[in-house]
Write a protein that binds this DNA or RNA. Structure first.
Length: 403
RNA sequence: GUGGAUGUAGCUCAAUGGUAGAGCGCCGGUUUGUGGCACCGGUGGCUGUGGGUUCAAGUCCCAUCAUCCACCCCA
């Protein structure tokens, strides 16, 4: 094997047609729901000044894809969509009318070690409401979170909801540890806290405190909202142990999990009233979520929710030689105008073997043969690849049969 | 960043330290205008890379790179 072989970078993927089709399906489902809820599409640049992200997202700056551009500026690839959209909120303040609802579907880049359900370039679908402090805004985006999973076809999605204000007296390190309760258990959480120099007794105290937290008014409003909207009770739950260790979240926080998908949560959301201010000095409250497209896709795929796109009605027009091709093109044009999918073999050859094989490999149902004989008689032959039958037809009959 | 597993043909994998193989794929033929099935034939490799041990290394040792998994963190 040559050592000159160039391959995709770690954590980056090539997406083949079969996979791309699935992604297309899911993407359109998600957009459909966003649009139905009145959210408007938005896009931000792939590259931003490094300063935008640094300091806003956790303390671990190593995860940024950053470099110096040709003008000597420190730049970073889009790390998430929340921070850039907050930049937008500040930058265009006078031009925006609130409440402002937008959705955004773009790749994000994180230089993490890849593993299952985790890539260095991954697609995120964000939706946020800006300019509304009320918990009803949180309730809306949480309901939206669930509605998307409903629309995709999941039977057991569940949104776990909590409020960061309930944790006001607990240090950040403890919150991070408690967030892992479900995964590592009580003992694990306490061990984790001890590692971060929290007293064992203090750790236990925090844990007990969290276990006994009662839902506050905000949570209650959200839960009522979800119930009124008509979601099944098993689809949402107050969970004081979810913590989403985002440094910028400061109100309701939530994540969506899929019962059968063990990799992790597929969506995470939070209120971030101070983020816009800390980026641009302008006060704009916000709340919303980031949906992990790749994980959602994996989960949907695992549960076989994605319809298998078939080429059942797809057609291959064979190509015989220069003369017949002229006529073939006219026919192909007509068929496509009827909305049919017609592939034409891109290399005319009297040897049809390859062309039929090509049709078979691509799962096409029909092959139209227009060779010397057909041209002479002003007809075409239509072969049904499933049945193996072949008929000699007039052009008009062909149109009738196929459309 | 930490820990573990694995790197052999295009793919999935074999090969007690002793001549590198199979299945699938691909190409050709049985069919010079017909795929999928069947049969026949063929193409295929510096065993990830670099060192070391040995008469002899795909196999043992070290390093390095890559992939996967877990942790960390997150989607």
């Amino acid at each position: 094997m040559s050592n000159k072989k160039i391959q995709t970078l770690k954590g980056f993927r090539d997406i083949f047609p079969k996979e791309a089709k699935k992604r297309e399906w899911l993407r359109s489902k998600i957009i459909q729901v966003f649009e139905r809820w009145g959210y408007k599409p938005f896009e931000t640049p792939t590259l931003e000044p490094l300063d935008l992200f640094e300091g806003q997202i956790g303390e671990d700056e190593k995860l940024f894809y950053k470099f110096t551009d040709h003008g000597g500026r420190n730049v970073a690839l889009r790390y998430d969509q929340t921070v850039p959209i907050c930049r937008v909120m500040g930058q265009y303040k006078g031009q925006l009318y609130f409440p402002f609802k937008r959705y955004q579907i773009q790749p994000a880049f994180r230089a993490e070690k890849p593993q299952k359900g985790r890539y260095r370039e991954f697609l995120q679908c964000d939706a946020d409401i800006f300019g509304v402090k009320s918990p009803y805004a949180d309730a809306e985006v949480i309901a939206l979170s669930l509605d998307i999973y409903k629309e995709i076809g999941f039977k057991n999605p569940k949104v776990l909801i909590n409020d960061r204000t309930l944790f006001k007296d607990i240090p950040y390190e403890a919150i991070v540890a408690i967030d892992k309760l479900e995964k590592i258990g009580e003992k694990g959480v306490i061990r984790d806290m001890e590692k971060k120099d929290i007293d064992k007794s203090k750790a236990q105290e925090y844990l007990d405190y969290v276990a006994n937290i009662e839902p506050n008014d905000t949570i209650q409003i959200i839960l009522d909202y979800l119930e009124s909207y008509g979601f099944d009770k098993s689809w949402y739950e107050f969970d004081p142990t979810i913590a989403r260790s985002f440094s910028y979240s400061d109100g309701p926080i939530w994540e969506v999990k899929i019962k059968e998908y063990k990799v992790g949560s597929v969506l995470g959301g939070e209120r971030f009233d101070n983020l816009t201010n800390s980026i641009s000095g302008v006060d704009v409250p916000g709340t919303g979520f980031g949906l992990g497209f790749d994980r959602t896709l994996e989960a949907a795929d695992q549960l076989e929710l994605i319809p298998i796109g078939d080429n059942n009605n797809n057609i291959l027009m064979s190509a015989f030689d220069d003369k017949t091709l002229k006529k073939s093109l006219k026919i192909v044009n007509k068929l496509r105008a009827e909305g049919l999918t017609v592939d034409i073999y891109p290399n005319p050859s009297r040897d049809f073997k390859k062309q039929f094989k090509y049709a078979d490999k691509n799962g096409y149902k029909y092959v139209i043969i227009l060779g010397e004989d057909e041209l002479k008689n002003n007809k075409i032959s239509l072969k049904n690849m499933r049945k193996g039958e072949q008929k000699l037809l007039d052009i008009d009959d062909l149109l009738k049969i196929l459309s």
